[in-house]
Design a binder for these strands. Structure first.
Length: 594
RNA sequence: GCGCCCGUAGCUCAGUCGGAUAGAGCAUCGGAUUCCUAAUCCGGGGGCCACAGGUUCGAAUCCUGUCGGGCGCACCA
């Protein structure tokens, strides 16, 4: 225990240290002392000791279960042990009181000075308040969206896009280096269909009557401009040519156009990837072959025959075929998985396996954000990463975040979103209708693994009940108050923070949770927690604000009490800072006026 | 049939490494506006945390089983 452990000067102004960590360290030190005094047996396991704010604020600022967890080891009862711990705690001048409650909790109340210092810390750190060095600068590759380049983005992609992007920002805020990556599936059969569909529109642009779009082509009108651009680019050179002549050309041409559309859709959501990886380029570089060779050398790929699918009637054209199979069953999958098709081309999985190996070369950890419709492929890709990273000598941590389906409703009616039918609602439509901030915040106000309905009509019509406005309103109110204060000639100042009341400090306590929330959310990889935290913070602020309705002494702007007013405005300004920091993680704008 | 996800108030959802009397919003009922933004706030009613066992000082939370909903289940992506 360092000699200055009883002062907060031991609390360095780094981005990692939180108030709660500092007090947890104090309690840990006390437990060490008790061991030295033989109150506790040496080496008592302290892993389950928690130091955290109690759920009910009436219980104080901090609570620890130390006495309950360790009583058995000390051969005593929790309350007796708690008294010994409390003896030490009350010697700390920053701890105003320590009480034993319930089955043996120790509830602490911290001195007001602690909270005043926290206000100063927020001000000093500004946009960095809440940042953590938990990530220790390690690189995390977050792959998200990765929509097939066969059309504009639709609602099905939207949730994964927002969650992935917020997750990436959250991890950055928590001290990771983050690579935001998009895997472009530009090598499969769907891209051939895209090329043929674009060629059809190209002939149309050249004046042919193509009639109804035949089965097996993408009918969407979004291909019309692609056809026109192709006509511009190629003239009539490919109009009557054999498919073999133009297929590759149109594939590349159409994919490029589609990616431009997708990037523009993403930009509307405020999303920008660092890296776009092409499946075709991956294959051209021979990465799947390299992966296969390595896996064969490990006997993790063999030639074998798949069993017929169970539990339902097998497809009519099913027949046993020998294929190169990856032994994913060795890693917990239900069956081994083919990496090549019977025509010798790579399966999606075969290429994806090589792709993950490639990603692992430049990152310490990988995260994929997928739609829940791909849940069935999680085990095999996890198996693949486990096998491949074992080859690098160390295991690359790998996590797949499944984002559940969004049921899109319009006036209660389900809206279909199949690209093939050409009938879908695009991101662009949606952002135009409800706005980026509403889309993003709404997608982040429930945990991603739960299904959600998104009723278009409801979100638009009831938009004033949308939580995003509630949070933004808190920020706008703060900004407005600061403007008003400036007009009245009052400048926010930290010189009289000692004049702040209990109610003021209650607000600070809530604000001081932010760094904890960031770390918890980053650890769990759940950005939605930030959204809920901001909602709660906004609620606390609004409640505080309304105290001023009943009691004018509790307002922010008090012309007759410039000292208190300056301090309270300083506090308000820091609350605003936290709202900004939190919204920045979510990619939502912190507006200054509504 | 198998795998994964979900099941918490009438509805939509939170719930930290297992912690104290399970919380919000909407809806409903009753209040607050000569005043810094009422797009706000305060209060009431509303619960078998799907069900049954187990683990332990303590379970909405962890384990097992059952029921209900969603997604997936040969070489598609």
């Amino acid at each position: 225990m360092p000699p200055d452990a009883n002062t907060l000067t031991a609390l360095p102004m780094t981005t990692s240290q939180t108030l709660y960590v500092a007090f947890a360290a104090k309690i840990d030190a006390i437990l060490a002392t008790l061991e030295a005094e033989a109150v506790l047996p040496a080496g008592s396991p302290r892993g389950n000791v928690s130091v955290e704010p109690p759920r009910d604020a009436a219980h104080g600022d901090l609570a620890t279960n130390a006495a309950m967890v360790l009583a058995k080891h000390a051969a005593t009862n929790p309350r007796a042990l708690a008294e010994k711990i409390v003896d030490h705690l009350t010697r700390d001048p920053l701890i105003e009181s320590a009480e034993i409650a319930g089955p043996g909790f120790i509830n602490l109340r911290l001195a007001p000075a602690v909270w005043r210092e926290e206000i100063a810390a927020i001000a000093a750190l500004g946009d960095s308040y809440g940042k953590s060095d938990m990530g220790a600068g390690t690189t995390v590759n977050v792959e998200y969206v990765s929509a097939n380049p066969t059309g504009p983005m639709h609602m099905g992609h939207c949730r994964g896009a927002v969650v992935g992007d917020a997750l990436a920002s959250l991890l950055e805020f928590a001290g990771h280096k983050v690579i935001r990556e998009y895997y472009v599936n530009d090598a499969g059969g769907q891209v051939d269909t895209l090329a043929r569909s674009a060629h059809l529109r190209y002939r149309e642009a050249l004046g042919e009557d193509i009639g109804e779009i035949p089965e097996g082509f993408y009918p969407g009108a979004y291909l019309i401009p692609v056809g026109e651009a192709a006509a511009q680019e190629f003239g009539d050179r490919y109009q009557r040519a054999d498919e073999a002549e133009w297929l590759a050309v149109f594939r590349a041409f159409a994919v490029e156009r589609m990616m431009a559309v997708i990037k523009s859709d993403l930009a509307q959501l405020g999303i920008k990837h660092d890296v776009f990886s092409s499946e075709a380029a991956l294959q051209a570089a021979g990465k799947p072959e390299a992966a296969e060779a390595w896996l064969r050398a490990q006997d993790l790929v063999y030639d074998g025959v798949l069993e017929a699918p169970k539990g339902k009637a097998p497809p009519e054209d099913w027949e046993p075929v020998e294929l190169p199979l990856f032994r994913s069953t060795q890693f917990g999958d239900d069956q081994d998985r083919p990496i090549r098709k019977s025509d010798g081309k790579w399966t999606y999985f075969g290429a994806d396996l090589a792709y993950h190996m490639q990603k692992a070369e430049t990152a310490d950890a990988l995260i994929d954000v997928w739609g829940a419709d791909h849940a069935g492929t999680v085990k095999r890709i996890k198996a693949a990463v486990a096998a491949l990273s074992a080859g690098n000598g160390d295991v690359t941590p790998f996590d797949v975040k499944l984002v559940q389906m969004v049921q899109l409703l319009r006036d209660g009616e389900p809206a279909k979103m199949s690209k093939r039918s050409g009938n879908f609602i695009t991101i662009a439509d949606m952002v135009e209708e409800v706005g980026k901030d509403v889309v993003r915040f709404t997608m982040l106000t429930r945990k991603p693994e739960a299904q959600m309905d998104f009723d278009f009509a409801k979100v638009v019509e009831a938009s004033k009940d949308n939580p995003v406005f509630y949070v933004q309103y808190a920020h706008a109110r703060i900004c407005s108050t600061l403007r008003k204060a400036a007009e009245a000639g009052i400048t926010p100042s930290d010189t009289h923070l000692d004049l702040l009341t209990e109610a003021d400090l209650a607000l600070v306590k809530q604000a001081a949770q932010f760094p904890r929330e960031v770390e918890a959310a980053a650890r769990a990889r759940e950005p939605h927690r930030i959204a809920f935290y901001l909602y709660d913070l906004a609620a606390a602020f609004h409640a505080f604000w309304n105290l001023g309705n009943d009691n004018p002494e509790k307002r922010f702007i008090l012309e007759h009490k410039a000292d208190v007013s300056a301090a309270r405005l300083f506090l308000a300004s820091q609350i605003g800072q936290i709202v900004r920091n939190g919204l920045a993680i979510l990619g939502v704008e912190a507006v200054e006026e509504l």
